[in-house]
Simulated assay, not measured.
Amino acid sequence: MDWLDHSLMGKKGVAAGVAGAAHSLTIEDQKTFHYVYGPYADPVLEVDPGAVVTVETHDAFEGKILSAADKPSEILQFPFLNPQSGPIHVRGAEKGDALAVRIISVSPRGPQPVGTTCLIPEFGGLVSTGQTAMLNAPLPEIVKKVVVDEAGVHWSDTLTLPYEPFIGTIGTAPEIEAISSLQPDYYGGNMDLPDVAPGAIIYLPVNTPGGYLYVGDCHAIQGDGELCGVALEIPATVVLQIDLIKGHGNAWPQLETEEAMMFIGSARPLEDAARIAYRELVRWVAAETGQSEEEAYMLLTMCGKVRLGNMVDPKYSVGASILKRYLV
């Protein structure tokens, strides 16, 4: 039996994890991309739970960096970065529910070299920024264009990195705020967590009727922390299966794979992001296993794992997880 049958989506989803009608959302269909997560945009697509949606996304730069000779500071207009496809309205979704989004595939899209990474002035994990203001001069602007296919990331003539795609920015609309797509928070957003990858299911809190799912900012590969502030950004074709869990009630994103369960927290300082993620995981483990929260707390001291998403955005993201085999 497939592990999906035993997943939260399979056990609790309105569609019980069964694939429903197929939909497509192309660049041409989208027309206008969004730079905030919020409830005020008109949905570009309305689907029933179970829908399988193929979405075309731009890279984080909306395709504006074309060559290694380009200077991001001259081409990009902050804060109009991280263009998002959507929002997708899911029928029946209400506040207190969760969207269950199974990531089926993430494929590079467009002419080669399709991948872009770069150094941007006063942006990154090891440089001065607006929040950590220093007198030293910014690093030089450097752009690297990379051929990416599903066989690998062709970094140089002598080095091919693995193709390890994931969705950098995915989430639902906040209830009242309109928040930059550069920022992660309780609704998801720009978490830049490599685990949000094909084969995983992410559970996102519904804060407004219809949920309003946004997606964009796909990456071909990224190390923990997204160290220089930019991963290998790619335009992509993403296939998602979207279900709905009524009354799920989680306040923060939850991610499930065949082997593990994870919660994702976003905050500054970094330790607060880890605390959020672990607090949510402690509470879930206790509820799932019937242990007290104190017992679950001690269990996670023994076998909890932490994954660093980004340490460069307005808020940092951390995933805290436990292997399912310990949930007895």
Rank of each mutant, 00 (worst) to 15 (best):
A200T: 10
K71D: 05
D42C: 02
D2L: 02
D313T: 09
V196E: 09
D217Q: 05
G304K: 06
Q183N: 01
T32K: 12
K315V: 06
K12H: 13
I221M: 10
A251H: 07
P138H: 11
L8Q: 14
N82F: 14
L45H: 09
D192T: 03
E288M: 10
E177V: 02
I322E: 00
V215E: 11
T169L: 07
V36H: 13
R275P: 03
E177Y: 12
P205G: 05
V114W: 01
I322W: 06
Y326Q: 11
A22G: 06
A151C: 13
P39Y: 13
Q254V: 10
T116R: 06
T172Y: 02
L25Y: 06
V215D: 08
G189C: 00
E259F: 05
S181N: 08
Q84C: 04
S292P: 13
G171Y: 00
D185A: 15
G152D: 11
A93R: 12
V106C: 06
Q241L: 04
A231D: 11
H219Y: 00
M262Q: 08
A69I: 02
H6C: 03
A296W: 08
G247T: 08
H89A: 01
D157T: 06
V285T: 12
P269S: 09
D272K: 14
H154G: 05
V238T: 15
L323F: 10
K246L: 10
L81R: 06
Y203P: 01
V47N: 06
T301F: 05
A151I: 01
P121M: 03
G223A: 15
E226L: 14
D243F: 14
A260S: 15
V14P: 03
L76E: 09
F61L: 02
D224R: 13
V328F: 00
L76K: 10
D195S: 14
A19S: 05
G225K: 04
L4N: 04
P121G: 00
T32H: 11
E74P: 01
E141K: 12
P165V: 06
